[in-house]
Design a protein around this nucleic acid. Sequence first.
RNA 1: GCGCCCGUGGCGGAACUGGCAGACGCGCCGGAUUUAGGAUCCGGUCCGAGAGGGUGCAGGUUCGAUCCCUGUCGGGCGCACCA
Length: 806
Amino acid sequence: MKPYDPSVIEKKWQQEWEEKNTFAASNDSDKPKYFALVEFPYPSGQGLHVGHPRSYTALDVIARKRRMQGYNVLYPMGWDAFGLPTENFAIKNHIHPEIVTRNNVARFKAQLQSLGLSFDWTREINTTDPAYYKWTQWIFLQLFKHGLAYKKEMAVNWCTGCKCVLANEEVVGGVCERCGGEVVHKVKSQWMLKITAYAQRLIDDLALVDYPERVKAQQINWIGRSEGAQLSFETTAGDPVLIYTTRPDTLFGATYMVVSPEHPLLAQWMEKGLLQNAAEIAAYQKLANQKSDFERTEVAKEKTGVRLCGVEAINPVNGEKIPIFTSDYVLTSYGTGAIMAVPAHDTRDWEFARKFGLPIVEVVKGGEVEKEAFTDCETGVMVNSGFLNGMTVEQAKQAIIRYLTEKGIGEKKVNYKLRDWVFSRQRYWGEPIPIVHCPHCGFVPVPEDQLPVRLPKVDSYEPTDNGESPLSQIEDWVNVPCPHCGAPAQRETDTMPQWAGSSWYFLRYTDPHDAQGFASRKALDYWLPVDWYNGGMEHTTLHLLYSRFWYKFLYDIGQVPTAEPYAKRTSHGMILGKGGEKMSKSRGNVVNPDDIVREFGADTLRVYEMFIGDFEKAAPWSTDSVRGSRRFLERVWALQDNVADGDAVRPALELAFHKTIRKVGEDVENLKFNTAIAALMALLNELTAAGSVTRGEYRILLKLLNPFAPHMTEELWETYGDNGAQLAYAPWPVFDQAKCVADTVEIAVQVNGKVKARVMIPNGADAPTAYAAARADEKIAALLAGGQLVKELYVPGKLINFVIKG
RNA sequence: GCGCCCGUGGCGGAACUGGCAGACGCGCCGGAUUUAGGAUCCGGUCCGAGAGGGUGCAGGUUCGAUCCCUGUCGGGCGCACCA
């Protein structure tokens, strides 16, 4: 036996796979199709992280198993290469981002190939390739033509670090999710995508797909649907104030109103001179405007606000005049930017009322509204509410909405927290937005035959401090004739966010070289939907939501065949540093997969990453434990010294083999890679104990192990295989359910629920036989003699329980 | 604050639908081999000498609870002044 040398074996097979395109998928095959997908990486300068292979190996195991099961498998890979780190690196080192990207991609690709992942490299894509982003731009134009892309002047999130606008989804805890920079509000004219038009369907269609519950819950939560009523309050100024509430039942308890500091009525009323304390209000507005998102969302913050002196509102159900305030606890961007305040039944209103000495009127009985707001909707009964008195909250909601509708004051209304997607970025390294601004024609789409709008080559692509894209500096690129009327016009100079290219990339894999469209209809019909998509939880309300939106739009305009893009989604846990903290350069606990491959081999790294723990949970890295995986492979390798003739499984090992085949198959499908490996280790232990394997037994072991350790098993298959095709396409072993059960089983014998003995009985023995066997045990007999038998239970194959008294 | 998830040996983690807790691996201990170390192989390894006791803690349901229920403590994640 040659010693196990992964550095030689792995190189050999990787070369073989590359030369022969072993894993190329066919768009024309009689086999059933299987589309396995992992999130394509951003090729950063740091190279691959040990977290990447966890996801990639998992679906590689699935892809390899599917090939052995006779599927035509598409398992593709590409590069999500637009984005800020590349641009920042380029700026710092004076290298063009295109070159930085090329270098990073080359490094990433070499690293991925060193792991033996069975990607179809003939379908490699790159979002920064003009032949690719042509279609990103094309999809944007379809959105524009269908009224789902629009430009609007509004207050947006501005990252002071990236000098760039951010989408709501990119602001985490008031700071930039990428750079951690402070986020402030800036009024800018921005391209927006109308994702809100799909809010309801993005919720409803989660019923059609197999996603983890936590993923569904997070998306539903983010979309934030609520049901209530929209209604207007008349004011003494004559202009009504429109409000949204989820508790219209508490209308009689509305003792004041609040409008957001940015509410347009404030400016109107000031202009008319209606507000006696205009200066005070203006000062408050200014203060609110200066606050960053972080300050605004700080928890446990004291309520602040200013009363609007000179204008009062009228409660539409009881005619009472109530004061109006402005406060930053009311958000401009949600609902109508104004609320009716019911301090007795809303925690925030309660706090505000307490601070400003406003009346708290109880309208739902059940709490102690002098002590705290009573927000329960289940148990209360309406009081102090005119015609609603005596109703439950639910009845009152319906009655009041009926009343408001009849009187023409208001109506039932559904609201979402989801906002439209801010789609402009003031940076260089992104897809140019293919729109021309014409002074006569307005926003004119670049004609489709002129796509792609290429990024111009420039010397300086630094972001500007004035909030303009660097592209705006390049006059001969910016100035073009209007495609519609020919008059001098200007290109849009903002670029798309990084999420643009990744919102449809999986479609391109089906037909990556198509020049006529983003993919041919035939290829899309054949491959979609993606059968299994694995990716990180951090993308749940970013990429995953965005790509569902784009896909649904493409479905609506007849471009793709199904309502949802991904039939099944799973999420892996993070790989943490040794102590359980996040891996980071500053902590110095980053493990480089290259080092592990060099020291132990790719197969060992793959097996270890699958064995490290529950796939869906975070797991700390342990290089010590990697050794265990290497030992396991060494022992499989060493088994070749003890291969005996024979294609059959020896009778004594039938049970072990059939059970292992079943277990490995089931575990892999259920994301239990760790226990699948454990089962293989247990089988190996049995084979080692048996002293030898037959050729047939060895083949089964190699097949089961192949998806995890493809190089080593393929190498052994050369000698011990069945002279047929490569192991990669050898048929996956099948098990016989009847052979998965033993002839005799050991069952536990309990007395009063405590295990006292174990006995062997024939499998499927009836109760009398089992009881007799148990009673035959000396210890059990003694215990039974010492008390009175009250009850006896027999769970076939498991245990017997004697319940005795005394 | 609201919603969700998780607490099992020294460590990572197993345990079908309520039925023998600790599979598998790491580490550790002992032995073999070795000049030595490393590597490898064999044996042991929840605690306890034993009866017995053990799945964060306190209760409950049950013949039987890591699993179901109530309360509590600890950790994590998501959303977060969303009316």
